[in-house]
Write a protein that binds this DNA or RNA. Structure first.
Lengths: 196, 196
DNA sequence: CGATTCTTTGAAAACAGTCAATCTGTGTGG
DNA sequence: CCACACAGATTGACTGTTTTCAAAGAATCG
């Protein structure tokens, strides 16, 4: 499992062998079975995870009691309630395993230590943070400027792997529409593709 | 103008007198007249500004040619196309002064220098970044989980000062609805308040 | 196979968007 | 100081989209 992560660290962060060794020493492997929770509402997110197998979703419950998916994570993605992680305060997010999954788990202390001692790691995370910021901006822009159908098309194009592994109703809530609407949007899109 | 900013730096960042002096030395005051642009699409956002007077909006143009407000900024707020600032790539945002405004202007080089040399400044920005992340999450959640009316109510409650200084049609695009819909939503809200 | 979960469909109601017209307030020039 | 122009806000009628609720079909898992 660590080798998978090591490859990522070399490619994305340019970590050296000795730096990898430092990371390895503090890496903790963790398995989470399908439908189990890595985090629940009201708890402090005291960790950051790197997904090596399977998939997760991060969601919040709305006023209406519905679950609204904020984020998905599959292999090579990081997962945490970053808001709670950064503030140290209890969060309002759930993190649920959508498949039998595995991740590499870092406690807050370990994480801070890695950031502080491995400049390449620090740089890599800063780059990811910037990408993340950009993704948030784009998602907000998408939400306020694009109709449901366009949002769906973009989602499929952007995350083709995700799309085939995740229940549609979760994608619907991610996009801000109901499962029924997504179903109809998909039907229309299929018809358009068939006739063109 | 700088004194206004200095107060902020002391309150939010706990900067010392000597640290303030370092900031003062590299601070550049800038005036922007109403309806003028601080940044336009396709340009690199090579600065970060701290608003000391007036107001700005950051917006993008949609596929449909409409302007979609991503963010507002008034006194004590930071303004920049952070995505472009962090990547150094040309961005797709406009920053427009909504009133005759003034800001303290930092070039990328100056900014990096401040971050590198003033730990209190660095910490303050890290805290702001975390707050910002949280705000993004909340806005996304709001967009996908709340009806237009609730989004409007929350906006008014959250930014009472903003609300009274900014044209409604910009608030509408910020919320992801048309100006007409916002007008009707407001009418309904007013009627509810009148009868209760 | 049966049970559960997920997806689709239909019909009605609620909601939001478009277009065009009107209203309101503000500021400018005569 | 008035009249006018202009930007912003509202309204009405209409259209289109999305939600809701209920039911029926797939698909999946034990």
């Amino acid at each position: 499992m660590f080798e998978f992560f090591a490859k990522y660290l070399v490619e994305k962060g340019g970590l050296t062998e000795s730096e990898l060794e430092l990371v390895r020493q503090v890496s903790v492997s963790k398995k989470v079975r399908k439908n189990n929770y890595l985090l629940e509402e009201g708890k402090v997110s005291n960790f950051i995870g790197f997904v090596t197998k399977g998939s997760f979703r991060l969601f919040r419950k709305g006023e209406d009691g519905q679950e609204y998916t904020m984020k998905f994570a599959i292999e090579n993605w990081w997962i945490s309630d970053f808001t709670s992680f950064m503030s140290g305060e209890p969060g309002n997010c759930y993190i649920e395993a959508l498949e039998n999954s595995e991740l590499i788990w870092f406690s807050r202390e370990t994480w801070d230590h890695l950031i502080a001692t491995i400049p390449n790691f620090h740089r890599m995370i800063d780059k990811l943070t910037a990408k993340n910021f950009e993704a948030h901006q784009n998602r907000i822009f998408s939400n306020i400027s694009e109709p449901a159908e366009t949002r769906y098309d973009n989602f499929v194009n952007k995350y083709p792997t995700l799309y085939s592994r995740i229940p549609l109703y979760m994608i619907a809530s991610f996009l801000g529409i109901t499962r029924e609407t997504l179903s109809r949007v998909r039907k229309q899109a299929a018809q358009r593709n068939a006739t063109s």
